[in-house]
Design a protein around this nucleic acid. Sequence first.
DNA 1: CTAAAGTAGTTGGTAACACGAACTAATTCA
DNA 2: TGAATTAGTTCGTGTTACCAACTACTTTAG
Lengths: 143, 143
Amino acid sequence: MPSPNDDLVDALVQLSFLVQGTLAELAGEHGLSVAQARLLGVLRDREPTMNELGRHLGLDKSSTSGLVDRAEKRGLVLRTPSATDRRVVQVSITPAGLELVTTAAAVFADRLGNLTAEVSDSDRRALVRATRRILDADPGWLG
Amino acid sequence: MPSPNDDLVDALVQLSFLVQGTLAELAGEHGLSVAQARLLGVLRDREPTMNELGRHLGLDKSSTSGLVDRAEKRGLVLRTPSATDRRVVQVSITPAGLELVTTAAAVFADRLGNLTAEVSDSDRRALVRATRRILDADPGWLG
DNA sequence: CTAAAGTAGTTGGTAACACGAACTAATTCA
DNA sequence: TGAATTAGTTCGTGTTACCAACTACTTTAG
């Protein structure tokens, strides 16, 4: 029997696919994949080690390495050896990467804004509130 | 300057990553990728042609072909030539596929249900309502 | 103070996934 | 009927992700 939760679950799933689809489309227009876009998004306000980065993205260290490899090859990201521990590598965003992610983020916000234009202010607030609760309930890899 | 929309956009993005992450994790536990899970989800209540399927998933026809290939090899899905047009192929879910997607969907709903346990009933309704509006505003590939 | 254990990151192998281009087969249209 | 269209597959390429094995450091134990 369908529980009253089914509507909510369904809504969340469709919404997530829509957002991800929008993200993928937009990233594509800027020559980025979703993974690359996410990487740049994380590095916008952090300069983590490979390890931290991997944990943040929920990726295996080898995956992280490859992701950074490709981004570095495009000049979007930079590896710097740590001064204090010669095993660790700090990852930072380059000016080019920052500019790319900044403009892309603006366009993205704009596009999502269009999609949410018809949502009432009170529903908007409810959505933000609900999201906070849901994220608080998640033990996962999200920062 | 941060617009009042930024909270909403941020909420949507984080939410979508959480949902997708949950989906990926759960699919993995059932030996499925997100793409495979989505394929089975679509086929749960449809028997589309390759073409329709691709449009539904927002995939190129070659991607659709490969996706169905792999699912078919695992016995989750079936290709049947159309009787009326010898070019077209109907795709359907097998009993095994149906069982898999059914149990996985139940676990998924349960898990998301836990995450949304703290959300009030009125916010829940608001979220569903907001999602409808947003999906209505989207011209994209979602059915 | 050195030997063993642990940690950080890379490399190599494998597989899924997605795309575009080129192709075959069937159908529609002009 | 011959030309354009449509459905689907195949092939080649690139990204992404994993695991296992490896190197190079650092920490910990004895």
